[in-house]
Design a protein around this nucleic acid. Structure first.
Length: 813
RNA sequence: GCGCACGUGGUGGAACGGUAGACACGCUACCUUGAGGGGGUAGUGCCUUAUGGGCGUGGAAGUUCAAAUCUUCUCGUGCGCACCA
C-alpha cells in the first residue's frame, strides 16, 4: 500500500486523543521537562510561523517523553486584545463570540498537525476564571504598593484609542498599528517595575548561554542602569527673587562627577517646573515662551531630529563647590522623564554639552588633561579641580561623591532608563482593572470574594470611546469599603499582563484551578520552563514583563521561582521570496492546504529541515515536495524489513556497502542526542537520516535494513510522529519507539582507513592504510603515493592527523 | 554615531583549526511510462589547452604544517540602542 498521510495521521491523532497520550503525570517523583512554545493570539487561522513554532516545541516534547521525562507541553490562547474588538466593529460580531469561535477553529488546525499537547490544561486568557486570579494578583500588588494610579504624560495611540507602555512604542510609533504616538496627560495604573530593575538586570547573568545573547543585551540596554551623583543646584538670590520665592533649588543627576569643576551652565527640560513657572508668569519674552511650548509638544524623536535648541532662562545657580554663578538654560535634549529633568553641563568633556555650548557661545572649561581637541571624553588627569587636581579622573569619581555626601550637598545614586509599566488600556476587550472610585474613600480595590469583575456582555462596540464608560449600569457599584455609591474603574489591563503569568497557570494542576491561581508545589516542580520557544519580537516586551511578574509573584508567596524561562530559543521568521509572509503582501502559505495535500508530517519535516530553527526560513514549494518524497521513500522501504525485533548483526559477514550503511545509521544515531539537547540543528539530523537511507539503498542485507529502520524511526519520531509510529507498529509493535539507543562503537571500526595526502597544504591524493599502522608506515605510504608532487622538493615537516590526513610541508630543493 | 550578529554554488544550507560545498531544491542527459505525474541511473562551485591542472567561503593582510573557522583592517547586509545627563 502506498503512503497515504491523511489516513495514517487521522488514525494516530484519534488514538492519541482517545488515550489522552500526552498528559503529564501528577506524580512528581520523575524528572521533568517543561516545554513551551509561546501561545498564539486566536486571530482565526494558523500561519506558517505558528507551524514552525509548534513543530520545534513538539520535537523537544516528544524527544524528552521518549527519554522518560515527565513532560509538560501545554497550549492555550492569548485571547484578549484589540483585533477582537476591531473585528467586532467591522463585522458586527461580539468579541467574545468571535474569539471563542476562532479558538475552536484553530484548535482543530493544531490538532491536524499532530502536536503532543496536554489538552486538560488548555485555557483562554479571556476565561473568567483566568481573569479572577489575575485580578487577585493585581489587588495584592496594590496592597504591596507595587501598583499605583497617577496622572502623567502618557503615550497615546489615536488609532488604537488607548495608552501604550514605553516598551510598546517603537521609533515613536505604536507597536501594533504603526500609527504615530502622541503625548497626552491622563491618569492610569502603573506597576513599579523599577523596583525590580536591579533583580531583572542581575539575573540576566544566570541566563547567559541559555538565552540568545542578543536578547540579554536588549534587556540590559532597556533597563539602562547608570550610577552617579545626585546633587542640588541652589538658585542665586536674585533668581530666587525672580521666581517669587517659589523655588530654592533643583536636583540634577550626573554619571560624571569627576567633571564637576568643569560645569559652565545648567539646562532644564521644557517641562521642568521652573521652566513652566517662568513661562506662566511671563518672565520670558513671548517669542521664547512660544518656542518652548513648541518643544514641549514634540516627541523625543522629533526633538532629536530638530538638533539642539535652547533658550537662556535668565536665572543662575550657585556651583556647590566653587560658589560660582552659573547660567541656567532650557534645552530640548533634556528629558523630563529622566534624572529629574535637569542637568549640569560640562562642554569640555561631553559631546552633547559641547555642541550646545558652541552653538550658543557658552563658556567651556577643561578639567581633564589629555589630547588637544575638545570635547575630550577619554580618561586623564584632573586639572583645575581644587583638591582633586592631579588624580586620575575615574578613580576620582568615588572621592568626589564621598565629599558631596560628607558636606551634605549630594549623594551617590542610581538611575534607570526603564520606566514603570503603564498597564491601563482604554478598551473593552481586556481584563477589567478591579478598582472602584469612591467619593469618600478614594481608590479602593474590589473585595477578593467579589472577583472576578467580569466584562458585561451587553455592550455596543462602535470604536468610539470605551464601551464600559457608556454602559448604563456596569460601572455603578457599591464601594467595597464604605458601601456607598461608587464608580467602577473602566480601564482594562494591558494584554501583556495575561501573558506574564500563563506559564504558572499551565503548571498548576487543572483540578485546583477553581481554588487557586497558581499552586505553589506544582509551580515549583514544573518551573522554570526548560525550553521556551518563540519569536525574537518579544525580546523586551513579553520576556521582560514575564520575568518581572515571576519575581513579584515569588515575593507575594505564590512560588519560589526566580526566572520563568530557563532556556530560550528564538525562532526565525518564515519568509517567501525574501519577505515576511503577510496577508497584505499576499505571499502567505496556508497550513491547512499544505496539510491537506502532503500531510502534517511533511509540513513538520520541511519546516525543520529547510533551516536551523533560529534562522529565517525561506519558503520553497519544491523543497516541500522533497520532504514529502523522503517520507514516502521511508514508508516504501518497510518492504525491506524482515523480523520484528532489533537484529544482532555480525559485522564480519557484511559487504562493504552494508557496513557503510550501518556507519551512516549509527552516525545519525550519534548525532541525535547532540541535536535534541544541545545544537537544535534538526536540519542536520534529518540530513544524516537521509544519508543513512541513501546508504541503506545501496545494499541489500535484510538485517541491516531492519536495524536501520528500527533506529531511524526512533530518531525521527519527534519530527514526523505519524508515519514513524505507523511504521513502528506495523514493523516492530512499536517497541523501537522507546529511548534513543546506545551507539555501538564496533560499527565504526574499519578494516582500512582512508587518509588524505596533502602536500604543501593542498590535497593531492588518498591512501588506504590498516588501522594498526604506525605513523612511519603511514608516512611511507603517503610519500610513495605522492611521489609525483615531491619531485624536486624537500620535506620540511610531516604531520599526521590520526584517522584523517597526512600533510607534508615542502619547499623546492 | 555606538553595540551585536551574519556574508559559503543557481537556491535553502553542511563542515571539533584538518578532504569546502554534506543533505536537499533546481538544472542537464539517459532509462522506465501511451503522455503527464511518479520512479531510476549518471552529472552538476568556477576556469581550463580536461584521465591533468589552476582558482575558489565578500575584500586585504596576518598567525599556522594546515584557515570558511583564529587575529587585525575593510566593504556589505540584518538587528538592537540612539541626545538617558
Amino acid at each position: 500500500m502506498s503512503y497515504n498521510p491523511n489516513e495514517i495521521e487521522a488514525k494516530w491523532q484519534k488514538k492519541w486523543d482517545d488515550e489522552k497520550a500526552f498528559e503529564p503525570s501528577d506524580s512528581y517523583e520523575q524528572k521533568k521537562k517543561y516545554i513551551l512554545s509561546m501561545f498564539p493570539f486566536p486571530s482565526g487561522r494558523l500561519h506558517m510561523g505558528h507551524v514552525r513554532n509548534y513543530a520545534i516545541g513538539d520535537a523537544f516534547a516528544r524527544y524528552y517523553r521518549k527519554q522518560d521525562f515527565n513532560v509538560l507541553h501545554p497550549i492555550g490562547w492569548d485571547a484578549f486584545g484589540m483585533p477582537a474588538e476591531n473585528a467586532a466593529i467591522k463585522h458586527g460580531r461580539h468579541p467574545k463570540e468571535w474569539t471563542y469561535a476562532n479558538i475552536d477553529y484553530m484548535r482543530k488546525e493544531l490538532n491536524t498537525l499532530g502536536l503532543s499537547f496536554s489538552k486538560t490544561r488548555e485555557f483562554a486568557t479571556c476565561d473568567e476564571l483566568y481573569t479572577k486570579w489575575e485580578q487577585e494578583f493585581i489587588i495584592k500588588m496594590f496592597e504591596e504598593k507595587l501598583l499605583y494610579r497617577e496622572s502623567t504624560t502618557v503615550n497615546w495611540c489615536e488609532e488604537c484609542h488607548t495608552v501604550l507602555a514605553n516598551e510598546q512604542v517603537e521609533e515613536g510609533c505604536c507597536w501594533r498599528c504603526d500609527n504615530e504616538v502622541q503625548l497626552k496627560e491622563m491618569p492610569g495604573y502603573y506597576l513599579d517595575i523599577i523596583k525590580y530593575a536591579d533583580d531583572l538586570l542581575d539575573d540576566l547573568k544566570d541566563l547567559e548561554g541559555k538565552w540568545p545573547s542578543q536578547v540579554l543585551t536588549m534587556q540590559s540596554n532597556w533597563i539602562g542602569k547608570s550610577q552617579g551623583l545626585e546633587f542640588e543646584f541652589e538658585l542665586s538670590p536674585s533668581s530666587k527673587e525672580k521666581l517669587g520665592g517659589n523655588f530654592d533649588k533643583y536636583t540634577v543627576f550626573t554619571t560624571r562627577p569627576d567633571t564637576i569643576y568643569g560645569v559652565t551652565y545648567s539646562a532644564l527640560a521644557a517641562e521642568h517646573l521652573i521652566t513652566k513657572y517662568l513661562m506662566e508668569n511671563d518672565l520670558l519674552d513671548a517669542k521664547t515662551i512660544d518656542k518652548i511650548m513648541t518643544i514641549s509638544n514634540m516627541t523625543e524623536i522629533e526633538r532629536a531630529k530638530e538638533g539642539k535648541e535652547g533658550y537662556d532662562l535668565g536665572i543662575t545657580v550657585i556651583h556647590p563647590l566653587t560658589g560660582e554663578e552659573i547660567p541656567v538654560w532650557t534645552a530640548n535634549f533634556v528629558l523630563a522623564s529622566y534624572g529629574g529633568g535637569a542637568v549640569m553641563a560640562v562642554p569640555a568633556h561631553d559631546e552633547r554639552d559641547f555642541e550646545f555650548a558652541t552653538k550658543y557661545d557658552l563658556p567651556i572649561k577643561r578639567v581633564i588633561s589629555g589630547g588637544e581637541a575638545l570635547p575630550y571624553t577619554s580618561e586623564g588627569e584632573l586639572v583645575d579641580s581644587a583638591a582633586f587636581t592631579g588624580l586620575k579622573n575615574y578613580p576620582a569619581q568615588a572621592k568626589i561623591i564621598a565629599m558631596f555626601e560628607e558636606i551634605g550637598a549630594g549623594k551617590g545614586t542610581t538611575n534607570y532608563k526603564l520606566r514603570n509599566w503603564g498597564i491601563s488600556r482604554q478598551r473593552y476587550w481586556g481584563a477589567p482593572i478591579p478598582f472602584v472610585h469612591c467619593d469618600a474613600c478614594g481608590l479602593v480595590p474590589e473585595k477578593v470574594e467579589n472577583l472576578p469583575i467580569a466584562l458585561p456582555e451587553d455592550v455596543e462596540i462602535t470604536g468610539e470611546g470605551n464601551p464600559l464608560e457608556k454602559h448604563p449600569t456596569w460601572k455603578n457599584c457599591a464601594c467595597p469599603s464604605c458601601g456607598k455609591d461608587a464608580i467602577r474603574e473602566t480601564d482594562t489591563l494591558d494584554t501583556f499582563v495575561q501573558s506574564s503569568w500563563y506559564q504558572f497557570r499551565y503548571a498548576t494542576n487543572p483540578k485546583k484551578w477553581n481554588e487557586t491561581g497558581i499552586d505553589k508545589e506544582d509551580a515549583n516542580y514544573w518551573l522554570g520552563v526548560d525550553q521556551y520557544i518563540g519569536g525574537i519580537e518579544h525580546a523586551i516586551l513579553h520576556l521582560l514583563y514575564a520575568r518581572f511578574f515571576t519575581k513579584v509573584l515569588r515575593d507575594l508567596g505564590y512560588h519560589n521561582i526566580t526566572e520563568p524561562f530557563e532556556n530560550l530559543l528564538t525562532q526565525g521568521m518564515v519568509l517567501m521570496d525574501g519577505a515576511k509572509m503577510s496577508k497584505s503582501k499576499g505571499n502567505t502559505v496556508d497550513p491547512d492546504a499544505l496539510v491537506e495535500k502532503y500531510g502534517a508530517d511533511t509540513a513538520r519535516l520541511f519546516t525543520l529541515f529547510a533551516a536551523p530553527p533560529a534562522k529565517e526560513l525561506e519558503w520553497n514549494d519544491s523543497a516541500v515536495e522533497g520532504a514529502f518524497r523522503f517520507i514516502k521513500k521511508l514508508y516504501d522501504r518497510k518492504e525491506k524489513v524482515s523480523g520484528n525485533v532489533l537484529p544482532d548483526i555480525d559485522q564480519s559477514t557484511l559487504s562493504k556497502e552494508a557496513k557503510m550503511a550501518r556507519v551512516k545509521v549509527y552516525e545519525a544515531l550519534q548525532k541525535s542526542t547532540d541535536v535534541y539537547e544541545k545544537t537544535f540543528a534538526f536540519n542536520t539530523l534529518i540530513a544524516a537520516c537521509m544519508e543513512a537511507l541513501n546508504a541503506l539503498d545501496k545494499q541489500d542485507n535484510a538485517e541491516v535494513w531492519t536495524e536501520g529502520l528500527y533506529i531511524m524511526l526512533n530518531l525521527l519520531e519527534p519530527i514526523i510522529p505519524h508515519v514513524t509510529t505507523e511504521l513502528s507498529e506495523v514493523l516492530f509493535n512499536r517497541e523501537n519507539l522507546g529511548a534513543i539507543l546506545e551507539v555501538k562503537e564496533e560499527v565504526f571500526v574499519q578494516e582500512s582507513i582512508l587518509y588524505v595526502v596533502m602536500i604543501g597544504g593542498k590535497k593531492r591524493t588518498e591512501i588506504e592504510v590498516s588501522p594498526s599502522a604506525g605513523n612511519d608506515e603511514i608516512l611511507t605510504a603517503a610519500k610513495e603515493a605522492g611521489a609525483k608532487w615531491l619531485e624536486g622538493m624537500q620535506i620540511m615537516k610531516e604531520i599526521v592527523v590520526p584517522n584523517k590526513l597526512v600533510n607534508l610541508a615542502v619547499k623546492p630543493n
